[in-house]
Design a protein around this nucleic acid. Structure first.
Length: 354
DNA sequence: CAATCGTGGCG
DNA sequence: TCGCCAAGATT
């Protein structure tokens, strides 16, 4: 099968593929696993600096399992999808406890670990254990949707199953590790979302979409729906020494497990902030300054953040607690904070009215 | 099955 | 400025 789909891809990979990414050296299951989790819905260039810092701090599955969860989250701060970080540590603890610190070379056992689904388990099998397994990420979906002219949005189960079938049938018995990297690289470098470079593609001869000049039409885009607008008050409560109050967010939901500024009811009027602050936080509010609001865009809604800086007297009335702490701003920035909160705490003071 | 979960880059 | 979406998994 010297001219098979897989073989053409491997020949292309030998010349053009990416072989020097940070998780490509000292390759073991732990390093591959961490990279795969970080790379979920996250671009390679974004991941690289996070990966380097994370591996320096947590060089082994044992180190990760034993670390304080806030430490793990702080290394994830800014990456998004924070359930990945919490699941990562849970899985590390399970690997240490149930598998004696060694990742199982088995699809079902890998999928039993939190945060590892079908594609990630396959990636670990192929990349770390060189075992035949089939991945299906965004790149592979795009390559296969074009090559086989698969109609419909890949978010639909029906379409997804068809893509999985194509992915399985192309997976070779030899050089699976390189093949897995190859098909992702082709999607990232040649079969790109916009302006695919079909002239450089080793698969164009057999590509159905290319034959009809419709490569750009695949895969079908997600049906669009309106994004709801939500609002919130984010309160910078500051004591005379410049310390600010942070609260640990509940483990699930947006920014789960991260620290953030206290939130107040979005229905409140600006004039009601002082009283609401005293009631919900139990501290006297001496002064209120409103700042420019800004909008943070999520994948499925927009959050209008209205910051207010409140001053209070010395906070000795409230001792630090597991989920409530007074911190200087540089200390706060060292915690796991959502990106908008980091901006708010680090940014210049703005005094314009909302 | 559809909704949820972040952020930054890019056209 | 804005919509789309990226090495998906979970509920």
């Amino acid at each position: 099968m010297s001219n098979s789909f897989a073989q053409r891809l491997l020949n292309w990979y030998d010349r053009h593929g990416r072989k020097a990414l940070p998780w490509h050296h000292d390759r073991n299951a732990y390093r591959v696993w961490v990279s795969e989790i970080m790379l979920q819905q996250t671009q390679v260039a974004t991941v690289i600096p996070y990966y380097e810092a994370f591996m320096a701090r947590f060089p082994s599955v044992e180190a990760l399992a034993a670390a304080p969860v806030d430490d793990v989250l702080s290394h994830w701060s800014g990456l998004g999808y924070y359930a990945r970080a919490r699941n990562l540590q849970k899985a590390a603890q399970q690997v240490v406890e149930h598998f004696d610190g060694r990742f199982p070379a088995d699809q079902a056992q890998l999928e039993s670990l939190p945060g590892i689904g079908r594609s990630t388990a396959a990636a670990i099998l192929a990349q770390a254990f060189q075992q035949r397994a089939t991945i299906l990420d965004g790149n592979v979906k795009r390559v296969l949707a074009r090559h086989h002219a698969v109609d419909g949005w890949p978010g639909q189960t029906r379409v997804l199953n068809r893509l999985w079938e194509h992915a399985e049938e192309h997976t070779p018995d030899v050089r699976v590790r390189d093949y897995t990297q190859a098909i992702m690289d082709l999607g990232a470098m040649v079969c790109t979302r916009s302006r695919p470079d079909c002239n450089s593609c080793p698969l164009s001869n057999t590509c159905t979409a290319h034959a009809t000049g419709e490569a750009a039409r695949y895969p079908a885009s997600k049906p669009k729906k309106e994004k709801p607008e939500k609002s919130t008050w984010m309160v910078i409560l500051e004591d005379p020494e410049g310390r600010v109050l942070l609260e640990k967010r509940p483990p699930s939901g947006i920014w789960g497990g991260l620290w953030s500024l206290p939130e107040l009811d979005p229905a409140l009027e600006a004039e009601e902030l002082a009283e609401a602050c005293e009631q919900s936080l139990g501290l006297p509010c001496l002064d209120v300054t409103l700042h420019n609001g800004f909008r943070h865009t999520f994948s499925h809604y927009h959050l209008n953040i209205r910051p207010a800086r409140l001053s209070t007297c010395h906070p000795a009335a409230i001792a630090d607690h597991d989920d409530r702490r007074w911190l200087y701003r540089d200390e706060a920035l060292a915690l796991g904070l959502p990106a908008p909160i980091r901006t708010l705490l680090a940014g210049p003071e703005q005094t314009a009215l909302i």
